[in-house]
Design a protein around this nucleic acid. Structure first.
Lengths: 212, 212, 212, 212
DNA sequence: AATGAATGAGGTTTCATTCAT
DNA sequence: AATGAATGAAACCTCATTCAT
């Protein structure tokens, strides 16, 4: 096996690092252009301008390099989220609105790859695991927030926090996916607003703490 | 192409009809057992006990017979929905609850196939179209209901009915899919209740017309 | 094997005769349309409007029915030759001119099939034999004529009659084939005239019996 | 497509060149032994002693490698013609005799392949085109010669030069083909002589310029 | 005589991966 | 580190032909 991935193991020389990066970049281009199944290792090496054998110096398989592409995507999206929202949200509602909006925009900007990730997850346990982990991150965060709100009597307590978090995160993700598959031009702001409203209202957020 | 299916073309003799049905049944079994990608035409014909060539008398490809399996699944699920809920729901809330519960239960009973459908849709435009059409059916129905409620001042008017319908249907579907992929034993009733609540509350249904 | 061909063996009922003829006619159409290799038995039966199995009641194979088509073609061409030239030729030269012209015209009228016959002969010994026999008929006749002329001092005696006959018959046939394969519109009369001239002059025919 | 042949594309390394040549040589052997239709790619790779997949590194199909075999044959025959005839012919008659004789001998030496080329041309447009081009080369040369002779009053002017060239080249080729298909032992010299005579006399060559 | 469902042998081709250089 | 030729397993699908009705 070849684990020359994420930065661990043998440690690449600068030259190797460059070649590896060239391959990942090329792979992203080709994957977006042809889709996962239609992409051949041959296409990637052609795009990268390296020999066929070179590919296997850095990656074990098409799946492995797709993983690298996705890992890079995750990093990029995380960065966006970090730098994105700006001011610390004042309230849970604002936090939700901000998170939803950020996710929607990010998905839109990387729609092709995000959709592909979902598809590949169905074919490859490794990518599936990665996707599940990423999703669980969102769900966990959402669940904690819901629980906190419920504990503070700021959200309805008649729903199961875990189920609700799962459902609402799924809602946002699925909406973005559906949108991305549709040719229809969608008003991203309106969509984000509607999703936020459904989120907030769904968990029964009491907007402002009622006075005594 | 070979579509000796939906009722058109030369019309099969009873014998042919029997063989075709035998193939579809076998295919369902094998698909569930091995998954779509791992399933070979050879596996299906072996399971059906017919010659290799016989397969191609009735279907053009693995995708084509998967489509037939899905079509049968749709029919079965429709039947369930029809006979399911029983009494006519009194209110929108009851209608939503009933629809959500029915969908959740049906998905659970055919989880493997439903998940596969989603995966295959990513690989095959034909199946994708079928899936989109089925989804749109739900969305359309939901949208009409939301619009009607809004018109009657029984639902919040600050959300876009189409986006909301898309999101909420996606929520239910995605929740079921997530659940199906998870080994965790889930309380179907509780899950359905939570989903219904999110649905109902999300669109801001006014439960009972407020007294004066 | 199935020899229900040329009219011998079991003897077909009138109904059978009709079905057989329908098949041969359909086959000719399809062969001309698709070429030999591309033609499937399925295409022939579809064109004839009979069941697949019916084909094998009358013919053993695609080659067998092609043979029947060719046999019919030969009969038609013989008929043309017979009724064609009209008045008995006065001289060898006229006989040659008439024969060449008739052949050229007949080939032109059945070009597609004639070419196919040549192709199929390369794939099937049976059709090859048939073609060779047909060709030999021409060669034999030509050879006899040349010999006769040579014996009568009406043709050059410095050539081998058999080789010359083979070559000249081949010349005419090949010219027609070349022509048929070419899109170029060719002046059939001029072509026939040139071929005749080459024929006549080639064997050194002394046009008019030298005086004394 | 894969044409790693004629000198274009990535340019083979010496090792690749060797393997390719090995395949072409093996293919020629097998084609001659089994005929085109009966030859399987499996037979060729077995003969060449390479893996099945290796074949498709260099050729796209059986037709493609047959083309390469034919191209090699053409090169070999050209070489023979070049080095063959020896002294510059004194007259048109000698030129014709020499060309005919050379062609007859060359055809005899590669009869099996030449016949196959004709057959395959009927099945494959690519090979057909190649054959037509090769034939046209002969026809063009012949036509030019005839025209020149006619212009110089050294050949009969009552024939169309193009038709005559087509016919006479066809005659030679067809004679050779007929001969090759026949088991009969033929006197190559006598045959060549007869063909030349038919050629020369056919176009009405005036042997020696008439004295004053 | 006609039907048409069933058969199954069999060659083609792809492409991820290896390995000698 | 890079190369690229070689590998070979693997699955597809066609279609002529049979045969039970």
């Amino acid at each position: 096996m070849n684990t020359r991935a994420g930065g661990q193991s043998p440690a690449l020389t600068p030259r190797g690092e460059r070649t590896r990066a060239k391959l990942v970049e090329a792979a992203e281009l080709v994957f977006v252009r042809l889709g996962f199944v239609e992409t051949r290792v041959a296409d990637i090496v052609a795009e990268a301008g390296v020999a066929h054998g070179t590919f296997y110096v850095y990656f074990d398989s098409k799946e492995a390099i797709f993983r690298a592409v996705v890992l890079k995507l995750i990093a990029v999206m995380r960065e966006k989220v970090r730098s994105g929202p700006g001011p610390q949200p004042d309230s849970a509602v604002e936090a939700i609105e901000s998170a939803v909006r950020t996710y929607v925009m990010a998905f839109r900007d990387h729609a092709r790859l995000m959709l592909m990730w979902g598809e590949v997850a169905g074919l490859n346990p490794d990518l599936d695991e990665l996707l599940r982990a990423e999703i669980d991150l969102f769900i966990d965060r959402a669940e904690k927030m819901i629980t906190r709100l419920q504990d503070n009597r700021l959200a309805a307590r008649d729903i199961d926090a875990h189920y609700a978090a799962t459902a609402l995160c799924g809602m946002v993700r699925e909406f973005c996916a559906h949108w991305a598959k549709t040719d229809a031009a969608i008003d991203a702001d309106a969509a984000a607003a509607t999703l936020s409203t459904l989120w907030v209202r769904g968990i029964g957020v009491v907007h402002r703490a009622p006075p005594v």
